[in-house]
């Protein structure tokens, strides 16, 4: 920054709206980018495109004819691409020729269990992280909590799941070992998925609290006679949270990635299983559909996160003028 700060006011009025428009544009760009990269990457797979789109196994010549029509394979690549984009814009994710089912249906049926799992895992992760950050900052407990967080972040998700099953499922018998549909069956998978996330979130929160604790305003707050509890709850925790909330998109992503493993470990139905089956069976239309869906999911989450971050840290809203 060379010339000094822009004095606010005149430009400030329409900023929130144009920022929202900018972000929506960015969101469309991410989804479009993911869809495009996915499309061309799949077209790079050597071999007859029809065979590629079928995946493992064989289908009748009638279905092959159907595929050529669905994807406009007789047309040049550019036309195929535009055709594909046009379908996406209409919300049509295509058909799985292996499963003889529209991709949207395949995904839609399995969306609910995965979202339940991710949601509960998120709740557990936030609670665990907050507990670690607030109570793990004494002289005694810091090294211990730090080590705990390090192990939580480092241990492979699927191994955590296996250990939890061994101990709480087979050993103590507290929770059902196989998916039974009840809430009890959701607890172990959700904890499994939550532990690495809680480790990351806890570290970031703790670092945020430590970083905020040496900011100059802390002196001012203490000079007002504020207690330590007040200082943390009213002031520094908010700084730490504003810092951590930008991680939400990343966390949602890791939860979705992790659900592939957790659903396998616990033999649960869900999006992760759909994805894994599609990958092993090379069911390309489903793979493409999941890529697009994931892009939409992250974009929406990041949009929400951006808006929340603005409320938590008002400086963000004007930051663009200073960058």
């Amino acid at each position: 920054m060379t010339g000094g700060a822009v004095t606010g006011g005149a430009v400030g009025q329409n900023r929130p709206v144009s920022r929202l428009v900018g972000r929506l544009g960015g969101m469309v760009l991410v989804v479009w980018g993911a869809a495009t990269v996915g499309f061309f990457a799949l077209r790079l797979i050597p071999g007859d495109p029809v065979t590629v789109l079928v995946g493992l196994g064989s289908v009748s010549e009638q279905v092959r004819e159907q595929i050529r029509a669905d994807w406009g394979l007789a047309d040049p690549l550019a036309v195929q691409y535009l055709f594909y984009l046009g379908r996406l814009v209409r919300g049509d994710l295509g058909t799985s020729y292996r499963m003889q089912q529209p991709v949207a249906d395949l995904i839609g049926q399995q969306l609910a269990p995965t979202l339940q799992l991710m949601g509960l895992a998120m709740v557990f992760a936030v609670l665990l992280a907050l507990a670690a950050a607030l109570f793990g900052r004494g002289r005694r407990s810091t090294p211990f909590v730090g080590l705990l967080e390090l192990v939580a972040v480092s241990a492979p998700t699927f191994w955590i799941g296996l250990v939890l099953i061994t101990v709480f499922g087979f050993g103590l018998g507290w929770f059902p070992v196989v998916a039974s549909g009840g809430f009890g069956a959701l607890v172990l998978p959700a904890i499994t998925l939550a532990i690495p996330t809680a480790g990351i979130l806890g570290q970031v929160l703790r670092q945020g609290l430590d970083a905020a604790a040496i900011l100059p305003f802390v002196d001012t707050v203490r000079a007002r006679g504020a207690s330590h509890t007040r200082l943390v709850l009213r002031h520094t925790l908010r700084h730490a949270a504003a810092n951590s909330v930008t991680l939400t998109g990343y966390i949602a992503g890791s939860l979705l990635g992790g659900s592939v493993l957790v659903e396998t470990v616990f033999a649960r139905p869900g999006l992760g299983r759909v994805a894994l089956n599609a990958i092993t069976d090379r069911d390309i239309p489903v793979v493409l559909g999941i890529i697009v869906l994931a892009a939409v999911l992250f974009s929406v989450i990041n949009l929400i996160v951006d808006l929340v971050a603005d409320r938590l840290d008002p400086r963000m809203a004007t930051a663009e003028a200073y960058s």
């Binding site: 991410v30 992503g253 990635g257 994805a275 793979v287 994931a294 892009a295 992250f298």
Partner: peptide, 16 residues
């Protein structure tokens, strides 16, 4: 925008 593990899965989906 895609987490690493998911990205790796997608790459494997493409290259086998």
């Amino acid at each position: 925008a895609f987490p690493e593990f998911l990205l790796a899965l997608i790459v494997i989906a493409i290259i086998g």
